[in-house]
């Protein structure tokens, strides 16, 4: 029942985008977001859109995947667009009905908002679709490693994220099982009342919590048995090495970002 979530999912592959260094991918995604949210004119969006299209082309992923991510957000998008159109009353009036005014600025703001959100989702999905969760956490660990000097527990933080990602499907399966078991005992999950729904969650959450603690203890023992001592003396199988492709991509991103800034500042 909870299996349809695609945000944060990874699609293995061997495209140009898949092979890029995850550290670079994270930084470039952040640069892309800046690009996308800069400037107030429609044309300032063009850089972000072109950049995203290039990345999409290099990922060799089917466009359908992205539709699936955007679909659940459609109501929210429509809502913001309608609010923008109703409440922004400046600019040339296209059409008026009573106090309702359809203005140029309103339509522009609405379009800009929708385009930005859609491209934000596509761009960040491109990152998670082409980078395995473990590569992502590794990359975050390395990008944050300067913080180690400030005694920030970077390694523990990354390990926690990895384990969380590892156990999401396991706990989902378990939740399904508990719900089935409670249903077999006559628990009602079908009542439309919110109060009943909340009440029905209690007998699901308590066993789930108890078993999670048990799992945590067993996993900790198993990790210790495999000589885990935090990041003391630990090496990695997959070493991240920036290659020519990473540098070229980074320079391309930098040029796009600079161009976007120039256009916004000059015009």
């Amino acid at each position: 029942m909870l299996k349809d979530i695609t945000i944060g999912q990874y699609f293995p592959g061997n495209s140009f985008l898949h092979r890029l260094d995850p550290r670079f991918k994270i930084v470039m995604t952040l640069m892309y977001i800046v690009m996308l949210f800069m400037g107030n004119e429609i044309y300032s969006l063009i850089f972000g859109m072109v950049y995203c299209a290039t990345a999409f082309f290099l990922s060799k992923l089917p466009i359908k995947l992205f539709g699936k991510n955007i679909k659940p957000l459609l109501p929210i998008l429509l809502m913001t667009a309608i609010l923008d159109i109703i409440f922004i009353r400046e600019g040339t009036v296209y059409f008026q009905l009573g106090i309702f005014k359809l203005t140029e600025d309103g339509v522009f703001t609405a379009v800009r908002m929708i385009v930005r959100i859609i491209f934000l989702i596509i761009g960040s999905s491109l990152l998670t679709y082409t980078t395995s969760p473990i590569q992502l956490t590794d990359a975050i660990e390395r990008l944050l490693s300067p913080l180690k000097k400030l005694h920030f527990p970077v390694h523990s933080f990354a390990m926690m994220m990895t384990i969380a990602l590892r156990f999401i499907p396991t706990l989902m399966d378990e939740t399904d099982k508990i719900i089935a078991a409670q249903k077999a005992r006559g628990a009602g999950f079908d009542s439309p009342k919110l109060k009943d729904k909340a009440k029905a969650l209690v007998p699901v959450l308590i066993p789930l919590f108890v078993s999670s603690f048990r799992r945590a203890e067993e996993l900790a023992t198993a990790m210790e048995c495999r000589c885990y001592r935090g990041d003391v003396g630990r090496t990695k199988m997959k070493i991240m090495k920036a290659g020519m492709n990473d540098i070229i991509s980074f320079i391309f991103t930098l040029i796009m970002l600079c161009a976007a800034i120039t256009v916004v500042v000059l015009f």
């Binding site: 969760p133 473990i134 990895t162 396991t170 799992r215 067993e218 996993l219 198993a222």
Partner: peptide, 8 residues
């Protein structure tokens, strides 16, 4: 399930 650490 309780001894596998990584996602791959």
């Amino acid at each position: 399930d309780n001894q596998i650490v990584a996602t791959i």
